[in-house]
Amino acid sequence: MVYPVAEQQAGAAGYPAAEAFEPGAGLVWSRISSRYPWHRRIAALVRAIPVAAVGAFLLWRGGGTLAALLWVVGVLAVLVVSWVAVEIAYRSYGYAERGDDLIVTSGVFVRRLIVVPYGRMQFVDVTAGLLERWMGLSTVRLHTAAAATDAVIPGLPAAEAALLRDRLARKGEERSMGL
């Protein structure tokens, strides 16, 4: 049976452009931990310090104090920008468990919204780096047979991540089917 074109247009009427990235159906986004931006900031700082130090040292040896100073200022500027950007990125993350699928939204530069049916999940990864572990955070990653799916929820509190993984795995098993 072929659906009339009108059905899609009627559907469009139900979604004002402003709500295109809302979970819909009265749901609210589950947000990630507020420690996440701090994790990103510390990670940026950890990377920025050696970059600033080594670069400044090399420039100071080669050119002069002014170049070294400019280098440090440049690194600081990047750090400040990322300080703010991380906050925006943090606010862009959200996930919601619906009846048959998980929806995840993310992205500042490119906005994304991914709908992953539970039955299509091949496996769910929970990873935590050194810094993440120290801050009690985990990253949940969903894998389907499509490489493009790439649904990642970073910065979840470790306990919540484990619970989410178990819930997803259970729902996935209930609805699992081949390819």
């Binding site: 990235f21 490119v110 906005r111 994304r112 047979a145 499509a146 493009a148």
Partner: peptide
């Protein structure tokens, strides 16, 4: 056969109020 459905908006599209819908297949 669809694995997941994605909605993406790149900066140009955001200015124009547009979006892309991907229906994901295996690689």
């Amino acid at each position: 056969r669809a694995q997941s459905v994605r909605l993406t908006v790149n900066p140009v599209q955001r200015l124009l109020g547009l979006a892309t819908v991907h229906v994901d297949a295996p690689p």
